[in-house]
Design a protein around this nucleic acid. Structure first.
Lengths: 193, 193
DNA sequence: GTTTATGTTGATTGATGAGTCAATAAACTT
DNA sequence: AAGTTTATTGACTCATCAATCAACATAAAC
């Protein structure tokens, strides 16, 4: 029953199915057919809308980044003062939108993809830059020139916790992870203040 | 010119070629033929010695872990006292044997592999456990019950720095990375002492 | 109501790559 | 020197998949 205006619906379904599928199998070795099937359509239709598997992957990556960006923006809007803002950024990084098995699993695989695909690399560096600039904005006034190093460390720690989350089974505990990073940050700030 | 006693040589060559190849292409999507070619033999021979691509990957992973283990052991042997030992562990993690583009790239891909292969997962958890126990051994006497959390944070930070190393081009700076982590650790210890 | 744009799929193509096998050759054994 | 074990490869099989295409169906436009 082909209605008109299916495109955005199909695209969204494919993106969602892609993330699920990559998260499930834990690898980029997912077939377009599998993705399409999970999204409730034929593989031909997936190609019709996206043109290639590569484009599907990129769309999925963009979607995750958009999600994360929204989460951060939302948390920041409700935060006041440097410390609170920092805390908001950290908490948003482990929010329920991003810090989930499938999403984190997909995320890890996008890191791999970024090694070979220029577009994926670009998207990833957008994320890294944004995180760093968010941190620096509120760290600089608090600890001055050491902010740079601390931001790098915090970024690495967050990525590392994502990886570990993917590997260890069970339900992810975003609050615990956020507390860990926040504790680290507080200590870094306390020393300099 | 078939001599006898080739097996260990061929195996070693294949392992080395595998790491290089994975590091280069930045993905597990390397063909046995490519690996074999780089190691100077036919793909049939690679299968003859390892049986399957999976086994080749696992051997490569084991090799990296052995390398890393040796590095840590060596550094620990020359270290005295809790603080020095901790420093040694951190420095060994970013030693020239492990903290190199290809090796780190292969490492990242093995994380991915661990999501689907039980054996790979086991190997990875051996590494994580060993690192954690190394850290705890000297952290506990210094900061008591907080040691657990700190060890987790340090481990995550190390992993995160590896990932970032892979993504950013250029020559890796192990010393800088080690300093970053060491600074974090020192601060954690200073607060409690 | 015929044309045009959109939605949809089954079948097909073409490439690629893991793993097998038969065959060859050199080295050791007895 | 006949037989056995180890080393080695080119050629082959078989499966998988990305991408394409022809065909058909429904809705909108004229």
């Amino acid at each position: 029953m082909p209605k008109v205006g299916m495109e955005p619906i199909r695209r969204a379904a494919l993106v969602k199915a892609t993330i699920t599928e990559i998260g499930r199998t834990g690898s980029l070795d997912v077939t377009v057919s599998k993705i399409a099937k999970r999204a409730g359509m034929s593989s031909a239709l997936a190609h019709h809308y996206f043109g290639s598997k590569e484009q599907i992957f990129l769309a999925a990556m963009r979607h995750i980044l958009t999600l994360y960006g929204a989460e951060v923006r939302g948390a920041l809007a409700a935060a006041d003062g440097h410390e609170e803002r920092l805390r908001a950024v950290v908490r948003a990084s482990f929010g329920t939108g991003s810090f989930r098995r499938e999403v984190a699993g997909a995320w890890l695989n996008f890191y791999v993809l970024a090694q070979t695909q220029a577009d994926a690399r670009r998207l990833l560096s957008v994320y890294q830059r944004r995180l760093k600039s968010n941190l620096l904005h509120d760290l600089k006034p608090l600890i001055g020139e050491r902010a740079d190093v601390v931001a790098l460390g915090v970024g690495a720690m967050i990525d590392g916790l994502y990886i570990r989350e993917v590997l260890k089974g069970g339900t992810p505990d975003g609050a615990a992870a956020a507390n860990l990073v926040w504790g680290h940050l507080r200590r870094e700030m306390g020393v300099a203040a």
